[in-house]
Design a protein around this nucleic acid. Sequence first.
DNA 1: CATAAGATATGATTCAGATCATATGCACCT
DNA 2: AGGTGCATATGATCTGAATCATATCTTATG
Lengths: 198, 198
Amino acid sequence: MNIHTLDMLFGEQETIRTKNLQAGEFIFHQGESARNIFAIEKGQIRLVRPTFEGRLVTMHLAKEGESFAEAALFAEMYHCNAMAVTDTSIHIYPKEKVLHALRISSDTAEEYIFQLSAQVRALRTKLELRNILSARERILEYFHLYANPNSRELHLIVPLKEIAADLGLAHETFYRELAKLQKDNIIERKENKIILLP
Amino acid sequence: MNIHTLDMLFGEQETIRTKNLQAGEFIFHQGESARNIFAIEKGQIRLVRPTFEGRLVTMHLAKEGESFAEAALFAEMYHCNAMAVTDTSIHIYPKEKVLHALRISSDTAEEYIFQLSAQVRALRTKLELRNILSARERILEYFHLYANPNSRELHLIVPLKEIAADLGLAHETFYRELAKLQKDNIIERKENKIILLP
DNA sequence: CATAAGATATGATTCAGATCATATGCACCT
DNA sequence: AGGTGCATATGATCTGAATCATATCTTATG
């Protein structure tokens, strides 16, 4: 769900709990009792899970407007750590209230199902991309997937570095491959756009 | 959703449409109007999408008892091709009926939300695993994730080959790494079990 | 029981992408 | 103007996983 849907579920704005976090501050840790779910008013939250070896793996990077820790709705405990990347303000929603709202409003439930389905599809697509071994092909497939099919253009709203991470590539590899694709006249770059040449 | 939940939604067993497919037979193709969603009574279905270059990428491998093409609930068209891997029998559910059932039964809706949430979590975990570069670490993390935390044992119900695919590794790499982990006394293998040694 | 099909296993080779290093460009701050 | 931080960019090197090849073991099947 997004922040608007969740806020609406709660009706009166004044009842919504909010919190301001400094960069690096934690919202919750793995294992803590899962009482709330959250949405981001401003800023970014990183959800990380420590591996058995102690390394940290990013589960998700939640952006402005997005909700996070929704898995908590059906879990006893949080299963990851949530940390503010930048200074961030969040909305806090007690999970029983959200569950209650879903139960009494079939519209809300349907909207939520819709959003979850979209998430599943998006995640499947991402995973599918990772099955393409070659960096060049993976990048091209990504562009074809997300470019406007008519104009064959892709607006870059996030930094290239982030796209690289999304694609599971080292950013160096990504930059390099972009340069090659440009040299081979397969793509063109203009301002914040990638244009797929025919 | 699974086949049981879906079947129950439809009440009388006799109203459920079924179909038998031969290995290799298609259920639907990308672009066709999305009228139904499906579940597998017996067999396996592979969902594949052709890349812009014509290569085929597997989106999902649906197993016995699982539903598939649920994305169709909120889409005009199917966005991938569905093919029977083996001889397979499926149940067919018209999507408006499913949507209707979700609308009138908040229990069903909640159950579905629960299952979708679990899917999202599972997919995130898979994606997270892929961000671990080293084959050995990825495998170990996988074992730690899915092993029984008390007995530190993991029952192998699917072939190793399939786990390798799930992990995004060539099966050769997986077999080799398993052998090494065994040699290094990090895991033990007994029958269909992997045991994590301390 | 014989044969086929697939899973498991391991060796040899190759190469693409990670990594490390370095440089430039750009926005923001004071 | 100078400084800090971050994105972009590119070069050099190296490692580890994919690939190809081959063999054995298991399971299904007529």
